[in-house]
Design a protein around this nucleic acid. Structure first.
Ligand SMILES: Nc1ccn([C@H]2C[C@H](O)[C@@H](COP(=O)(O)OP(=O)(O)OP(=O)(O)O)O2)c(=O)n1
Ligand SMILES: [Mg+2]
Length: 1070
DNA sequence: ATCCTCCCCTAC
DNA sequence: TAAGGTAGGGGAGGAT
């Protein structure tokens, strides 16, 4: 499993290993991963066998084995790796010789580099392996019979206990012996040790045990409690993490509150997804929906502003070049090779900071934002924490954690409610300021943005050079932005500065809280050497696991030694390249702006509890209505629907640990064309289709845990739609339509010609504003900003839930009138729709804001007296004509196309890109703190407990390989565990069957298929031998048993069918 | 090689 | 009580 702290640095990894860092809610049935893995391994093992000239033939592969072998196979603890010779089975537990991680085994035919790294494969053949296994078995069996123990739960486990543990070493030893395990007092070559149990590890021990299975004592205690050997991975030791006080096993726990509530029918019909109006209420309260929805708006707003700004800039650049000459620093995108200055700006604990504005008494205390308030829920609230104050983080509380966990860490933690409207207001202020300074802005989220300030810093730098200032102009600029944001919002942001996005993001983490940091190229290697792969943006658990398993390390220092080819082999071509560069501090990522939408979706995976198909159907239709709204909002139609269903994993309790959560689920996607391939947004078509698809799964409604409708293959809704007219990316429409509510956009473009050009960056306006700003705190500049912010707010509100219930298809009034009027004031924390304000003059505001920038330029006249650095100005018609762009045509283009046109036009006209001074001020090198202090806040979020997860390694059967972390032993453990209590997972079964069929069809795979089926048969007989020829649906056990036998017979039949075609006979598995 | 489809994964 | 959404990147593996 992945635990959150694994992806954080050293001492910061202080969280409960039961948590998962994945924000994703796809908690898949673990069984399917196990199967993938098992099959990977098996295909490999048997491939080896077939390479061995053993003379065995396919139908009697195991024929010569005594029956005891197969029967005992599943009960046996297999070695962690295939033994190359007669050495102890525990050889894989020995630390590898330095520089030669012998545990990393690959299939023969490795790529040359890997070959060099891993050394030659030294697998024995499968037959030899089998015999050795048998020998070992006998030894074990004799031990067991001699032992006379209480249970055999820990059979085959040989444990070395390291250092101080809780429970004590004596207790653990007793536990081991009592349940059939072996206590190993020594760790040397002669002792067989399958696992190391520990609560703490020194750095040295950490290295020593790097390739061993190191677990918390809870693995043993919880296994005994559970009466079965739990997967050791669930209890894997993580450096810096506390001993798993709360069992990982909680993933399987049931929430008693939920059970109680669900027992009452009236509660169910009022509070689950079957309740009337559930969807609307849900989205009003969902923070994640809020984040997603607002991000989309911000991206859109920035794109529009930037589009027009670029036209403006393009035109001005032309002038500038003429006026100032080629040597002048030039801002923005036109520059040829000057190093960029990228800033990453992010509010500190944003939701908390916003909430504290009206709760000054809570400052300095551990505070979290969550739905549960006061003492609600007591110590058992599963309410999720959206944001934790830095004081709370000192206790180990993290964003995404449940309140009950937080209360365990800090019983006095204070909770404050969500205030979505306030977050939005603050965010708009924040973006307003950034846009007034930056050449380019990428809206990352409500509280976070990337800005390219190359131009502004460049001007500052040359000004500073004149003044002989020793300061870093970039840092000065960042501090200035911080101050402005603080003034406008009373909240702290932190700013990371560097020459690319990757490094700017890294810098931010060190800058936090309430600071800025300029990461200079010279310091990059030293920093990188201290980092883990998961510290890089975009790399998380899956990459870390792959790195660990395929590359032998998750440390960037180690990964830096790998060739690009090796990284690509392990992580895929794109990701491999990205990592290869990232490790070297290289990142060419451009700031991203709005692209054409590719999909529109609605998904709810919370409180889905249906007791009838009717309820489920109503809900699906409600979801369809919601997608239609969203499609209309962006004026898109879709040709394809994807229905996403989460269904309770058969192994998961009916009520999982999180109150009304989805728990462990299997996820199913089904896609179909909509309306015979015609693009539509019609909720009736979508709803009926979705319901048909859901029905076709044939899932009991009570098992559903999540439903999503995704609409793909989008195309613009041409012409006036029959519904809402919200702003969207509708190309080739009359400008009124493009400009959504006419009142606002109309003046924006045409009015611009009069206002903006005249005022253009009139230097004169700047000092005035600055003065007023400083003299009277909330005077003119604030007004100006307010105007702009209000404007944005007005424009960005409509897509939010909380707006008035919409008639299905109100006729649109082009040209006038409020966009949407609310009939009633909805409750909830979501920003509410306001009535539309009269048009404002955004461009004017922007212009007046722009010059504020100039205040930073010490000697303005020596730079660009006539050009405001603000890149977010709209082009006037005059601007456009200068660029040979027809303003009327331009006006009706979607922002993306507008941008493109402008870029082309600008390049054509500029004829060349002015050279820029590459001069950099050399500043005193920065010392890096040790990793512990490097990042004060670990990035990942404590999430839901996750089940064991094994990944399929490599690409094809041919390329499978063993690693120390993913060995046969684990697979058997996993397999056996998966078998015990539950019916087979449908997807696993299908995958498994398909794999076997393919094996039989291929000429080389018959043997392995037969071996696997035999093995399967042995397992089935072992657990449910009584049911093999017996029909009994009595109890739950019988049901499970019958399910497995049915699955087996089904697969066997399919295989026989294939075999008959191919060989003219059935497969013998007896 | 390059495309397409079906997912998983990531970020906030 | 609680509100675990959402879009896009990209890998795996098959079709062309
Ligand atoms: N699992 C999460 C993570 C974040 N958020 C929301 C609340 C956060 O305040 C906001 C911004 O996320 P950040 O990752 O920027 O976290 P913070 O701003 O809270 O803290 P900081 O940026 O100081 O680390 O997004 C959330 O609801 N759930
Ligand atoms: Mg933040």
């Amino acid at each position: 499993m992945e635990s959150e702290e694994e992806s954080t640095l050293g001492e910061d990894r202080a969280s409960d290993p039961i948590l998962s860092p994945l924000a994703s809610c796809h908690i898949l049935g673990q069984a399917s991963r196990w199967l993938c893995n098992i099959i990977s391994r098996l295909s490999y093992s048997v491939t080896l066998a077939t390479l061995t000239p053993s003379g065995s033939n396919s139908s009697d592969y195991f024929e010569d084995e005594d029956p005891g072998f197969l029967e005992a196979l599943d009960a046996t603890v297999l070695p962690g790796d295939l033994p190359p010779s007669d050495e102890s089975d525990a050889e894989d537990l020995e630390p590898p010789p330095p520089g030669q991680p012998s545990l990393k085994r690959r299939h023969p035919d490795p790529d040359p580099v890997d070959e060099a790294i891993y050394g030659p494969s030294h697998f024995g053949n499968f037959g030899e392996y089998a015999h050795r296994k048998r020998a070992k078995l006998q030894i074990q069996n004799s031990e067991i019979t001699a032992a006379g123990t209480q249970s055999q739960i820990l059979k085959g486990i040989a444990v070395y206990i390291n250092g101080y543990t809780e429970p004590s070493i004596q207790e653990l030893r007793a536990l081991l012996v009592l349940h059939g395990g072996v206590f190993q007092p020594y760790l040397d070559k002669k002792s067989i040790v399958t696992h190391i149990v520990t609560c703490v590890l020194t750095e040295a021990k950490m290295r020593e045990f790097k390739n061993m299975k190191v677990v918390y004592p809870t693995w043993l205690t919880e296994s005994v409690k559970a009466g079965t050997l739990l997967p050791w991975r669930d209890f894997i030791f993580v450096q810096g993490a506390p001993p798993a006080s709360m069992p990982r096993y909680a993933a399987d726990a049931s929430n008693p509150n939920a059970q109680r509530a669900m027992a009452k029918p009236e509660w169910r019909s009022a509070h689950t997804a079957a309740a009337p109006g559930f969807i609307k209420g849900y989205f009003q309260h969902s923070r994640l929906h809020f984040l997603s929805a607002l991000k989309a708006e911000l991206v859109q707003l920035v794109a529009e502003a930037q589009t027009h700004a670029e036209a403006k800039f393009a035109q001005e650049e032309e002038n500038t070049v003429v006026k100032v000459g080629p040597d002048s620093p030039v801002k923005g995108k036109g520059r040829a090779s000057e190093a960029r200055v990228i800033m990453h700006c992010d509010f500190d604990c944003f939701f908390v900071a916003a909430g504290l504005l009206s709760r000054p008494d809570h400052r300095g205390k551990p505070v979290v934002v969550c739905h549960s308030q006061g003492t609600q829920g007591g110590s058992s609230s599963t309410s999720e924490i959206a944001s934790a104050s830095y004081e709370a983080r000192d206790f180990g509380i993290k964003n995404g954690m449940s309140l009950q966990q937080a209360r365990k860490l800090c019983p006095t933690v204070l909770t404050i409610p969500y205030e979505f409207q306030r977050y939005k207001d603050l965010s708009l202020k924040f973006y307003t300021i950034l846009m007034s300074h930056a050449d380019e802005v990428e809206a990352v989220s409500i509280d976070e943005a990337l800005i390219d300030v190359t131009g502004a810093v460049s001007r500052l730098r040359s000004a500073a050079a004149h003044a002989g200032s020793p300061h870093d102009p970039a840092k000065d600029f960042a501090e200035r932005i911080r101050a402005e944001v603080k003034e406008a919002t009373a909240c702290e942001i932190s700013v990371g500065i560097s020459h690319n996005v990757l490094l700017a993001r890294l810098a931010t983490r060190r800058a936090k809280p309430a600071g800025s940091l300029h990461l200079l190229p010279a310091d990059v290697p030293a920093l990188m050497a201290t980092l883990e792969i998961t510290h890089l943006w975009g790399f998380a658990g899956s990459h870390r696991d792959k790195a660990r398993e395929k590359l032998g390390s998750t440390a960037l220092s180690a990964l830096a030694t790998k060739s690009r080819a090796v990284l690509c082999d392990a992580l895929g071509p794109k990701t491999g390249k990205r990592l290869y560069n990232a490790v070297r501090g290289i990142d060419h990522t451009e700031l991203r702006s709005a692209k054409q939408r590719k999909s529109v979706s609605v998904e709810i995976n919370y409180a889905i509890r249906f007791d009838s198909n009717e309820k489920a159907r109503d809900f699906v239709l409600g979801m369809a209505a919601t997608v239609e709204e969203r499609l209309n909002e962006v004026k898109m139609l879709g040709r394809q629907i994807v229905l996403k269903i989460m269904k309770r994993d058969p192994s998961a309790p009916v009520e999982g640990p999180k109150f009304m959560g989805h728990g462990a689920c299997e996820v199913f996607n089904k896609q179909m064309p909509l309306d015979d391939g015609r693009a539509t947004s019609d909720q009736k078509i979508i709803g009926e289709q979705a319901w048909k698809m859901l029905k076709s799964f044939n899932f009991p409604p009570a098992e559903l845990r999540g439903i999503g409708i995704h609409i793909n293959k989008l195309e613009p809704a041409d012409g006036p739609t029959n519904t809402d007219s919200k702003q969207g990316k509708l190309p080739f429409k009359p400008s009124e339509a493009v400009i959504h509510q006419p009142s606002i956009n109309q003046p924006r473009i045409s009015g611009h010609a009069t206002t903006s050009v005249a005022g253009t960056s009139a230097d004169g306006s700047l000092p005035a504003i600055e003065e007023v700003d400083q003299a009277v705190l909330d005077a003119l500049p604030v007004d100006v900003r307010q105007e702009l912010e209000n404007e944005w707010r007005r424009r960005s509100e409509s897509p939010f839930p909380g707006k008035a219930p919409q008639p299905p298809a109100p006729p649109i009034q082009h040209g006038s009138g409020p966009l949407r009027l609310r009939s009633a004031a909805p409750q909830g924390v979501f920003p509410q729709q306001r009535s539309v304000k009269p048009p404002t003059r955004m461009q004017q505001s922007a212009l007046r804001l722009g010059p504020r920038n100039g205040a930073y330029v010490i000697d303005k006249n020596s730079i660009h007296p006539n050009r405001p650095p603000n890149a977010f100005l709209r082009p006037t018609d005059t601007d456009l004509r200068k660029l040979d762009v027809d303003p009327e045509v331009y006006a009706i283009l979607p922002p993306e196309v507008q941008r493109e046109q402008l870029t082309v036009a600008r390049l054509l006209q500029a004829g060349g890109i002015p050279e820029v001074s590459g001069e950099r001020l050399t500043l005193k090198p920065r010392k890096y703190l040790p990793p512990a202090d490097l990042f004060r806040q670990p990035p990942p979020y404590a999430k839901y407990p996750e089940r064991p997860k094994l990944r399929q390694q490599g690409r094809k059967g041919e390329k499978m390989f063993f690693t120390e972390a993913d060995d046969v032993q684990s697979l058997i453990e996993a397999w056996v565990n998966a078998f015990k209590k539950f019916p087979p997972n449908e997807k696993d079964l299908e995958f498994f069957a398909k794999f076997l069929v393919q094996s039989v069809e291929s000429d080389t795979g018959v043997e392995r298929a037969v071996a696997i089926v035999k093995w399967w048969l042995v397992l089935l007989r072992r657990y449910w031998g009584d049911y093999e020829h017996f029909e009994d649906f009595g109890d739950e056990d019988a049901r499970v048993a019958m399910a497995w036998w049915g699955a087996f017979r089904g697969v066997k039949e399919r295989l026989d069918l294939v075999a008959r075609k191919k060989f003219g006979g059935r497969l013998s598995v007896r």
